[in-house]
Design a protein around this nucleic acid. Structure first.
Lengths: 173, 173
DNA sequence: TCCGACACGTGAACC
DNA sequence: TGGTTCACGTGTCGG
């Protein structure tokens, strides 16, 4: 069959075009082996997986200073292909902090995979592991960061008398 | 040639083994097309490249509240294969803040690709784009974060009278 | 000459 | 039966 011959040729072209595209995306010239190229790709993807598992540790005890942290490996997907990243907020505690936080997560369509909360000496720290839609992952990260920032400002401006209250760091080993 | 035949077979096995490995790493089953698999790989690598360019915006004007931010895509490598990430520190200004910062960067063997500094109303914000060795990227990020935290605590404890000095946010639109 | 990598066409297997 | 994907062996080019 001539049909068969051409179909196979198109299949090869499809595969090779993807390989060529990978050659342009990775740090390698256009004349690297097909096998070596794939080896580099494997290495790259593995690094992402590795960092995914290493993103998991963050401080959970509230500190005296206000903090916002948004950590993303940019490549750690859940099983369903959503982008997973970690956000941490440390600030003065207040009664409506959690509702505000939940509202932010809902408005950004972020799914909360895990949440840790700790309060100590009037201060609180929230560590969230959230998943974002793949299409809006970057926007979600930036929006979340800005939202947390405004949340922090809100806490400070609503009760400025608390700003000096935290525990003395020397007492916390 | 029998030699030729077997050599070609080994070559195919090498390529296919890498493809199989990619199949286990990506969200796809073991029975996906070779071409489709590569298409997903391309998509993934492209996302990383994209996020690399989008990490670049962070607030540069000092805010009234203390802040530490460490942002990493985990996949944005410079041309030499080092991990690039962004760190931001906002706190009260003091004369030896920059030297301390430089000392931290040196001790962590972080190469500074870009640095922005702004001071306003006695407060300062430093935005750094740094590159870390690929092998110690995660450790570097965590160490940097902790170091910045201690730096911030040092600023507050060394001159706590400054803590209330900043500009009123309402004046800054 | 030999060795490595590649594209090609073909038969087989699977909906 | 076609349509599609894969593995295989072979011819060829370059070092």
């Amino acid at each position: 069959m001539k049909n068969h011959k051409e179909a196979e040729k198109r299949r090869r072209e499809r595969i090779n075009s993807h390989l060529d595209e990978l050659r342009t995306l990775l740090p390698c010239n256009s004349k690297t082996d097909k096998a070596s190229l794939l080896a580099k790709v494997v290495q790259r993807v593995k690094e992402l997986k590795q960092q995914t598992s290493e993103i998991t540790e963050l401080e959970t005890v509230p500190s005296e200073t206000d903090e916002i942290t948004v950590l993303s490996t940019g490549g750690d997907y859940g099983s369903d292909g959503r982008l997973v990243f970690k956000a941490s907020l440390c600030c003065e505690d207040r009664s409506d902090l959690i509702p505000d936080l939940i509202e932010i997560l809902n408005s950004l369509h972020l799914k909360t995979l895990k949440a840790e909360m700790a309060t100590l000496g009037g201060r609180t720290r929230n560590v969230l592991v959230v998943a974002a839609d793949k299409e809006h992952s970057i926007e979600s990260i930036n929006f979340l960061q800005n939202s947390l920032k405004s949340l922090l400002d809100r806490s400070n401006s609503s009760d400025r008398s608390k700003r000096r209250r935290g525990l003395d760091r020397r007492l916390m080993s």
